[in-house]
């Protein structure tokens, strides 16, 4: 793929199969630096698979992906460089339960960047303060609420100073009263100009933050548009059906 510096993420012709089942079909998507993309679509449409291909938690079989001009191929050096650029937040947090909150944020910096402990811990506290839970630093993840855990997960990803953040349904495992604190954190991040791809069904968040909303179904991008156009005048029948189903 061409190294296009004006693209944070450049996906073209992406195909992925699980055995005989094609999960992603000829996906094209480019994301400009600072752009916020919200991806939505019914369950099983391939949203998670798409963003997990970007940092190669899943391997793709066809097409190409480039992140900040680095193309994702079999070179481990490139993969390593891409993972430096890209942070990820999971639906189920995936915090390390045997480590304290501070250690969750500090240890990855030590292990993957060879940072000194003192520096790593300062960074950890900086971002824990930013997600407004510095006082929980010495607790273990199992002692926090879901919303707090997800904010720790965001801080942990930010500690690696990524240029792009991927979120895979960050609020869908949370009790309703905790959704807001996590979304607020993400809004703050967006306002700082972070490039983000967010898989979510929080349409309020999409309206407020997204530059573009992407609707996926059965492994294809059906429609992608600015939030106002997407929500108010969807073009495809499938998009309309989907919007009707989630708005009740």
């Amino acid at each position: 793929m061409t190294d296009h510096p004006s693209c944070a993420i450049e996906i073209s012709g992406l195909d992925k199969w699980y055995g005989n089942f094609q999960v992603l079909k000829n996906i094209d998507l480019s994301v400009a630096p600072g752009e916020r993309i919200v991806v939505c679509g019914p369950s099983g449409s391939g949203k998670s698979t798409l963003i997990r291909c970007i940092n190669r938690l899943e391997e793709h079989q066809g097409g190409s992906i480039a992140v900040n001009g680095i193309s994702l191929n079999d070179s481990l050096k490139n993969l390593d460089a891409i993972r430096r650029e890209v942070g990820m937040v999971f639906q189920h947090f995936n915090l390390f339960p045997h480590l304290t909150v501070r250690e969750n944020c500090a240890l990855p910096q030590i292990l993957s960047r060879g940072k000194r402990r003192k520096e790593a811990e300062e960074m950890a506290m900086h971002f824990l303060t930013k997600v407004r839970i510095p006082e929980q630093a010495n607790k273990f993840p199992g002692q926090l609420s879901g919303g707090q855990q997800q904010r720790v997960a965001i801080a942990r990803a930010l500690c690696m100073t990524p240029k792009i953040m991927l979120f895979d349904e960050p609020t869908s495992a949370l009790d309703p009263e905790m959704v807001k604190e996590v979304l607020d954190t993400m809004v703050a991040l967006a306002e700082e100009g972070m490039t983000m791809i967010v898989v979510t069904h929080e349409m309020g968040f999409a309206r407020r933050v997204a530059d573009r909303v992407v609707f996926m179904e059965t492994g294809e991008i059906v429609e992608a548009d600015k939030p106002t156009a997407f929500f108010d005048t969807p073009r495809h029948a499938r998009t309309k059906n989907f919007l009707a189903s989630i708005m009740h």
């Binding site: 938690l57 390593d80 995936n94 390390f96 990855p108 993957s112 990803a157 690696m160």
Partner: peptide
């Protein structure tokens, strides 16, 4: 859980 290794990989931990 597999998510632990995934998180580590996403964070670039060897």
């Amino acid at each position: 859980p597999a998510g632990q290794i995934e998180a580590a990989r996403a964070l670039g931990i060897p």
